[in-house]
Amino acid sequence: MTSDELCECAKAVSTKAGFVDFVEILSRDYVSNRDEWQNDTLDQFLLGLSGFANDMGGYYKNMGEAVDVEKITWRIAAEMLIAATVYEG
């Protein structure tokens, strides 16, 4: 799956079940495309997740989306995981 396709999958997440499915897709992508992940170790991934969580208000503002980052949705949680694959923490 391309990174654009993963992002589209994340945007489609709206329920807990959808989030679980997305995490399974992301896990399979890691196995198949690990070399394409900038943060391909657990410590890098977690630092990327932390960095994105810290900065995500600015990200959504730049994207033109009004997102209350204190009350995230299943979609936002999925997008946080996508961001963690590349975001520098």
Rank of each mutant, 00 (worst) to 15 (best):
R28L: 09
E24R: 10
V20K: 02
L6C: 02
I25T: 05
L46T: 05
V20R: 04
G48H: 04
M63A: 15
A77G: 07
A83N: 13
E36H: 07
L49C: 11
L46Y: 01
A17C: 00
E88G: 11
K16I: 15
I82W: 15
F22C: 02
F45I: 05
K11W: 13
A77K: 14
T85Q: 14
E36F: 09
D29T: 06
K11I: 04
K61S: 01
R75V: 03
G57N: 06
N54R: 11
G89R: 07
D29I: 03
G64L: 12
T85N: 11
V31M: 04
Y60A: 05
E79M: 15
R28H: 06
S27P: 00
N33P: 05
E36V: 08
G64A: 12
D21T: 01
D43S: 13
D55N: 13
N54H: 09
E5Q: 06
Y30K: 06
S27F: 03
D40I: 04
M63W: 01
V86G: 12
M63I: 05
Y60Q: 05
S32M: 12
L46E: 00
E24Y: 02
L26P: 00
N33E: 07
D21F: 10
S32Q: 12
C7V: 02
F19N: 04
R28P: 02
M1V: 08
N54L: 12
V86H: 14
D40M: 01
D43H: 02
E36K: 11
R75A: 13
L47N: 14
C9Y: 13
V67T: 08
A84Q: 08
